[in-house]
Computed example of a mutant assay.
Amino acid sequence: MNAPEPVRQIAHVPERHDAALWQEGLRTGLPSLFGIAAWGLVVGIAMVKTGLTPLQACGMTLLVFAGSAQLASLPLILAHAPVWVIFATAMVVNLRFVIFSALLAPHFSHLPWRQRLLYGFISGDMTVAMFLQRFPTAAPVPGKLSYLKGLVLPNWAAWQAGSLIGIFVGSAIPAEWGLGFAGTLAILCITVPLVASSAALCGVLVAAAVSVLAHGAPYKLGLLAAVLAGMLAALAAEAMIEQRKARHG
């Protein structure tokens, strides 16, 4: 028995709404996809030029969706550092994702844990920021998940495409070209624009000083110490700046 015409029309409204928000998410994230692919390309080249085989590099890019953590772990892997040191360094570098997870959790707490795990894994810095700009509160709004999919799925695909191209292009480029420094250059290109405040500059300077002083530490632990010191210094500087503003406010 066919449903009445009004019922059929109402049944299609949520689907159209989800499709519209998916397309909106795609349009919002589209301008950043070229940059994400280029960043993945650089990381892919850096992985094979610092000693990983193409197969190992492909495994890393598919399992570790975090360019900064990948680059931070490469020198530790080459130095044969203990696994716990490599994991600890990657976790410290990616502590910001704990904050991202806390910000996204109220929006998707109703989803099964498998879906939350999947979308959390393929979410990135830019996509989380874009989503929270579109939905700043956790109020229930139909189509939130579709909007998130429109952001994160193309973003993840662009990263993987760029990274895989970088891996296979990098493996074909002669070592004499000296592209092993590509990872360091990529980190500098990402870091410099982020130093937009006094607190961030303080963190960078402290991290740089600690990394130089602890350069001879075993298992490249100086890198981990520098990251921790820089984060703590930035937080302390931010707290002092806020206190000063409060006193003069």
Rank of each mutant, 00 (worst) to 15 (best):
A237T: 11
I10T: 11
L232W: 12
G180L: 08
G216T: 09
P136W: 00
A200T: 02
F121H: 14
W159F: 14
P75K: 10
L153W: 09
V152C: 07
L223E: 04
M240K: 07
A207L: 10
W177H: 12
A66S: 12
R96H: 09
G183D: 00
H17A: 14
G59Y: 09
I122N: 04
R247V: 13
L95S: 10
L21R: 04
A175F: 00
S211L: 11
T89A: 09
T50E: 02
L41E: 03
P193M: 09
W177Q: 12
G44L: 07
P54N: 11
L33I: 03
M91K: 00
F131S: 01
R16L: 12
A158H: 04
L205R: 05
D18N: 14
R244G: 15
A90G: 13
A105N: 11
L117G: 15
T127A: 15
L224F: 14
W159K: 01
F97E: 01
M91G: 10
A196Y: 08
A81Q: 04
V92P: 02
I122H: 04
S123L: 06
G180Y: 07
Q115F: 14
A72M: 10
L30D: 12
L228C: 12
M126D: 08
A186P: 04
A196L: 09
G29I: 06
S123K: 01
G35H: 03
P6F: 02
A209H: 04
A209W: 02
F97V: 01
G40R: 01
A186N: 07
A66R: 05
A57C: 06
R8L: 15
I241S: 13
L26K: 01
M130Y: 10
F97P: 01
F87W: 10
A172M: 13
L63K: 14
T127H: 00
L164S: 01
K144N: 05
G40A: 06
L104Y: 00
P142Q: 06
A69W: 01
T50A: 13
Q160G: 08
